[in-house]
């Protein structure tokens, strides 16, 4: 037993030394090297900032809270798109609170968009995995077109065109789901409204 303990003490010294060496290599050198190489695509390494009039107003990748009829709305978020508290709802598949919440959202969205409750798509009724989902489904974007057009005084066809322009297909044509970039779309709406106001 004493032999085992003295061996443990001796080995622990080697362990400590190795840990220090490895911390320098893996904990400082490696992330710094990835950062340096990432500067070749600095925009991506920095999280794809989105700018309006030179100011950063968000990231292509991170959803934002949009209320009000002039905007396309994102998915329900348990944290109101707070990036310092990324989280799903973690409500279980049989949780009565979740079931009630889904029904409540269904009637809200149906009333807001003037569509039948059955036509509200699933992503409008459910929170995402991060609470920061930047995207909605093309179906959810479609049912919002009429309201956004009306609220902004834009032709429906123009808004529908912008939705199409901000719809991404599956990655490489087959991976994942088709999505609509909500921030990019709302930015385009805002820009279009501003341009028309300037005419």
């Amino acid at each position: 037993m004493t032999h085992l303990l003295s061996d443990l003490a001796r080995q622990s010294l080697a362990a400590l030394r190795l840990l220090v060496v490895m911390t320098v290599v893996l904990g400082v050198g490696y992330p710094a090297a990835v950062w340096a190489a990432g500067q070749v695509v600095a925009d991506r390494a920095d999280g794809q900032p989105v700018r309006l009039d030179g100011h950063v107003v968000g990231s292509r990748l991170i959803g934002q809270q949009f209320d009000g009829d002039q905007w396309f709305h994102g998915r329900p978020s348990p944290n109101d798109y707070d990036t310092l508290a990324s989280a799903p709802s973690n409500l279980g598949p049989s949780n009565p609170d979740l079931l009630a919440g889904i029904e409540e959202r269904r009637s809200e969205v149906a009333a807001r968009e003037g569509v039948a409750p059955a036509d509200v798509p699933p992503d409008a009724l459910t929170a995402s995995g991060s609470g920061l989902d930047p995207d909605i489904s093309p179906a959810y974007a479609r049912i919002q077109v009429a309201r956004v057009a009306r609220a902004n005084g834009l032709p429906v066809a123009e808004v529908a065109r912008l939705v199409t322009a901000h719809t991404d297909g599956r990655s490489l044509g087959f991976l994942g789901e088709p999505t609509v970039d909500v921030l990019g779309l709302n930015l385009a709406i805002a820009t279009t409204v501003a341009d028309r106001g300037g005419d």
Binding site: R75, N90, P93, S94, L99, A127, S128, G129, I136, E177
Partner: peptide, 24 residues
């Protein structure tokens, strides 16, 4: 196959739009 998925039309609670059910 869950109560929430039947209520919402798909098991999208806790899933990101870009991944969907298959990739999740």
């Amino acid at each position: 196959h869950s109560a929430a998925a039947r209520a919402a039309g798909a098991a999208m609670e806790g899933k990101e739009t870009r991944f969907g059910e298959w990739a999740s």
